[in-house]
Nucleic acid binder design. Structure first.
Length: 593
DNA sequence: GCCGTTTTCGGCCCGACTGTTTTCAGTCG
């Protein structure tokens, strides 16, 4: 059982316990905390279980969660969930995915109307039965019906690059309004997560209502979900959800921290604040009033609303907010509660790699295979981006439909490259190729030709369905080939379209480290492969990373920023990224010189 | 259920908006 599946079971436990009601809310929260840990963990927990490792070492995993995980890995099911499902229909958890329906309402729908599925809920709402229930009404019933339609049609998360395109004109629309002093996008977009569920926009203004009005008047707004005095939520025509919050300038820093998240990072900050007698919200950092007689609430009170606040100590800038908590400013890409607060406290935050550090691009295609531009056009585009070197990596013959090259065609290309390179001393031209790794792990070109290349990129483009063991063997054999330098888009995933191939990440990374082979972070926003957590694992195991665009046309060379952002999320410094350094260091790390 | 520079009990993050309430519960982020 894989981590995501384990997490899904634990999440279902939490949902069912919540629907059941009368359960200690902190017990439910404990399940949700464990879900986060399991989802974020880079290596399969199944391997930890097989090694007999102590799972309670993991954050938010105690004896109970550890035994749950062991049971799931070894038996494939969780007896506690089976017991719970005998009391509460499991399908009720789908109801709370609907907007406006939470655990309490789901429970009521089941108790009063015997509803357990979305289909049954739709029928009951259409018949007007839902509005009759206490705590429900006509509006709620209508909202549920709309929500069901959207639930069935929903598109899922948006890729970061799509959101970039959708959100830029909206930002321009807001910025041209006089009432708006400043606009910034927060949320997972600012943390540069590979996909974004909804977009959080933060506006600074003293005329809040005017900003809300401007936002609601944006031509691409398809429907308004809610609109208050300081916040509004809309769906754009693209179905992308956008939340706007309008705040005073003095609150900008606290608000930006709050809305950038992640949720887990914020919770950790607030816990830290409480330890210091402070309270953090989107309105600032406040001293807590002396808490003489704090009356403990009986269960269900999840919030600390009503706590007496004292003097405000920070809020205008993010720096101030972190400083008030005894921390240096933390880059948004690191705010995932993966140890950044501890590192910040010790002043050990990494100096993250940036786009300006990049000195070359190590995967791109020309019209010799499936690229759209000539070799010389690609070269000139690299020069204009200020690169010191670049690698041209047209496909090998196994990808016939791309015009992949056999030995004879490669020989002709190398001759053409020599001629072009001789006219362009301003950049170092690396003769390279993206060579297919065949199903058995052999490379798709004669060894004799490999010797004529400066750099060899090896990639999997077929047989994505091999077993974990076979796929691991395949990659290990290819990496062990003495000519191999870089594994291109190692997991082969296409975000939202094709799953990653299955292999033993630890074994492959260790093999790469041993053989001086680098792993690529493919910067194309559809791939982002390796992903952030995998790169963290690679760094831990001493495997160098390269960031390449895999450009098939000149314009795609600009996708480099997406790769760099993912590398930043993986805590990588310029020293961890080979093509952020001088060519000699790169070639030496790959065992070329 | 988890956790520990106020450790093995007693805590556990904070606020806005909506709809249905006649003073607030539920949901959401």
């Amino acid at each position: 059982m894989e981590n995501l599946e384990i997490a899904a079971v634990l999440r279902e436990m939490a949902d069912l316990l919540e629907i059941k009601g009368g359960v200690n809310p902190f017990r439910i929260r404990a399940y949700r905390n464990a879900v986060y840990t399991v989802e974020e963990y880079a290596t399969p927990l199944r391997t930890l279980v097989e090694e007999g490792a102590d799972l309670t070492e993991l954050p938010s995993v105690g004896n109970e969660m550890a035994s749950h995980i062991v049971e799931l890995v070894t038996t494939g099911h969780l007896s506690r969930l089976v017991e719970l499902a005998a009391e509460i229909p499991r399908s009720l958890v789908t109801l709370i995915r609907l907007p406006g329906v939470g655990p309490k309402k789901a429970r009521k729908l089941w108790d009063e109307l015997g509803i357990t599925t979305i289909d049954e809920l739709e029928a009951a709402a259409a018949a007007g039965q839902v509005a009759e229930l206490e705590g429900f009404g006509e509006k709620t019933q209508g909202k549920i019906l709309e929500g069901i339609v959207r639930y069935r049609a929903r598109q899922g998360r948006f890729r970061l690059a799509e959101v970039d395109e959708l959100i830029r004109p909206l930002l321009d629309w807001l910025r041209t309004d006089d009432a708006v002093q400043h606009v910034e996008v927060a949320g997972s977009y600012r943390r540069r997560r590979e996909t974004v569920g909804d977009v959080d926009i933060l506006a600074i203004s003293s005329a809040k209502q005017a900003v809300i009005d401007r936002f609601l008047a944006y031509p691409q707004v398809l429907r308004v979900d809610l609109a208050g005095e300081t916040r509004a939520t809309v769906h754009l025509a693209s179905e992308l959800q956008v939340d706007l919050r309008v705040l005073d300038e003095q609150d900008a820093g606290a608000a930006l921290v709050y809305f950038t998240g992640s949720k887990e990072h914020n919770i950790a900050l607030r816990r830290r604040a409480l330890e210091r007698g402070l309270s953090v919200s989107e309105y600032g950092v406040f001293k807590l009033a002396a808490s003489d007689g704090v009356e403990p609430q009986e269960d269900a009170d999840l919030s600390t609303t009503g706590r007496e606040l004292g003097e405000r100590v920070a809020g205008r800038t993010e720096q101030q907010v972190y400083e008030s908590l005894g921390l240096p400013w933390i880059p948004p890409e690191l705010r995932e509660q993966r140890g950044e607060i501890v590192a910040a406290e010790r002043n050990e935050l990494p100096q993250l790699v940036s786009l300006e550090d990049m000195r070359g691009d190590l995967q791109m295609h020309s019209d010799w295979s499936d690229g759209k531009n000539t070799i010389e056009e690609m070269l000139e585009a690299c020069v204009s981006r200020g690169y010191e070197y670049f690698a041209l990596t047209d496909h090998s013959q196994a990808l016939a439909m791309t015009g992949g090259m056999d030995a004879e065609k490669l020989a002709r290309q190398l001759a053409a490259i020599d001629e072009i390179a001789s006219r362009h001393p301003e950049i170092r031209f690396l003769r390279s190729m993206e060579i297919d790794v065949l199903a058995d792990g052999s490379l798709d070109i004669e060894d004799g030709m490999l010797e004529r290349l400066d750099l060899v990129v090896i990639s999997i483009h077929s047989r994505f369905d091999l077993s974990t063991a076979d796929q691991t063997r395949r990659l290990v054999r290819a990496i062990e080939h003495p000519a191999s330098d870089i594994v291109g888009h190692p997991t082969g995933r296409i975000i939202g379209r094709r799953d990653a191939i299955e292999f033993d990440l630890a074994e492959v990374l260790d093999c790469a480290a041993e053989n001086h082979v680098a792993m690529e972070c493919n910067a194309h926003p559809n791939r982002l492969d390796l992903r952030d957590t995998h790169m963290m694992e690679a760094k831990k195991r001493g495997v160098p990373i390269v960031i390449s665009t895999d450009a098939h046309r000149v314009a795609e060379l600009d996708l480099m920023s997406y790769g760099v952002e993912q590398a930043r999320r993986a805590w990588l410094t310029p020293g961890d990224v080979l093509n952020a350094g001088p060519l000699e260091v790169l070639l030496s790390a790959l065992g070329r010189i």
